[in-house]
């Protein structure tokens, strides 16, 4: 960037709207110099590449809640939505690795979106250092209760006559759904929606027969009996839905899930990374954070940064291979 490194100085750590409205006392406003040795000396910005209110944003905010206790500084969450998080991720990757600019990564950005966008748009793990993994959000295929479908076999029986919703191009939802249908030999019309919620609504209204969405989204409908869970796309069963078989159990090796991790620009000093890792581990151990995971049906996946990078790169390769094997068309430029 420019000579003015100060333009990137972390924000005054004011809870939004607080000071001007006089509702809350302003806490932790610091204006100290960057890199004074005692990291962290000022608020740490956590950038989220999704809209406020989405599940990624909620996770970021749940983490940020514990920051004051864990780091002694606050952690303002900034939303910079766009291109499934690619814009925010690239912006953070270009910052100084001084530990004051972090981002919350979605695994599908690396593993799935990369399959449908041209190379110059794809985000590479090389530009980032992953601090630690956070949690896993499973995908589940649900059917309209009126269809009477109870399992993948029931859907198979109606092959050719099925319409199915996905959460959109390049999402884990689409990938999981397409892989399953391809391997099970089910034919149907794909109807992409903007995100999981409208796809689920279409299932409830009978506009489509089945859809694959995230567990947290589907849970209220499953509990109410308006949507029937058919199969879950993860290595192991979800603890909140012990009765729902995994795709692997059904004979389809399709471990697709949304993982999330905290990352920072590459080549950060080791001591900064250690401080961050310890801090996040501390937050992850709090009751509040664990309760949050539980309420949102997230499975903790608190693994080290190296493991995350290995896991995600492995997934990206596997998905690419599976897509090619099955001759799938996820869309995208001349894909």
């Amino acid at each position: 960037m420019s000579w003015c490194s100060c333009s990137r100085r972390p924000l005054a750590a004011v809870v939004a709207g607080g000071l001007s409205l006089g509702l809350v006392a302003c806490g932790g406003v610091t204006d100290g110099a960057v890199g004074g040795g005692d990291y962290p000396a000022e608020p740490i910005t956590l950038t989220v590449g999704q809209e406020p209110g989405g599940s990624t944003d909620l996770i970021a905010r749940a983490l940020a809640e514990g920051a004051q206790d864990a780091f002694g500084v606050s952690m303002p969450v900034e939303n910079q939505p766009g291109a499934n998080g690619a814009i925010a991720t690239q912006q953070v990757a270009n910052q100084n690795p001084d530990g004051y600019e972090l981002t919350l990564l979605n695994s599908t950005l690396i593993t799935t979106t990369a399959q449908v966008v041209p190379e110059e748009e794809a985000v590479s793990m090389d530009d980032l250092d992953v601090i630690m993994g956070l949690s896993r959000d499973d995908y589940i295929m649900v059917a309209n209760a009126d269809t009477g479908y109870e399992s993948v076999e029931d859907v198979e029986a109606d092959s050719g006559d099925i319409s199915y919703g996905t959460a959109g191009i390049g999402t884990g939802s689409q990938l999981a759904q397409l892989l399953l249908f391809e391997e099970a030999g089910i034919e149907g019309n794909e109807v992409p929606f903007d995100s999981g919620a409208p796809a689920l609504t279409a299932v409830m209204g009978g506009q489509v027969d089945v859809a694959t969405v995230q567990v947290g989204e589907a849970m209220p409908q499953i509990e109410a009996g308006t949507a029937t869970p058919l199969v879950i796309f993860s290595d192991e069963r979800n603890e909140h839905l012990e009765d729902v078989p995994t795709a692997v159990e059904e004979g389809y090796d399709i471990p697709v899930a949304q993982y999330r991790a905290v990352a920072m620009p590459a080549d950060a000093p080791e001591d900064v990374k250690d401080t961050l890792r310890e801090g996040f581990e501390e937050i992850a151990a709090t009751e509040d954070y664990q309760g949050f995971n539980d309420e949102n049906y997230l499975t903790p996946e608190e693994i080290s940064g190296e493991e995350v990078e290995e896991q995600w790169t492995g997934m990206a390769d596997e998905y690419a291979q599976r897509i090619e094997e099955n001759g799938l068309d996820l869309g995208g430029e001349d894909a």
Partner: peptide, 16 residues
């Protein structure tokens, strides 16, 4: 400056 930077914590690029 007071409204957006302090009040609303908008991350607008700034000098001061």
């Amino acid at each position: 400056y007071l409204t957006f930077v302090y009040g609303l914590a908008v991350p607008i690029p700034r000098l001061f």
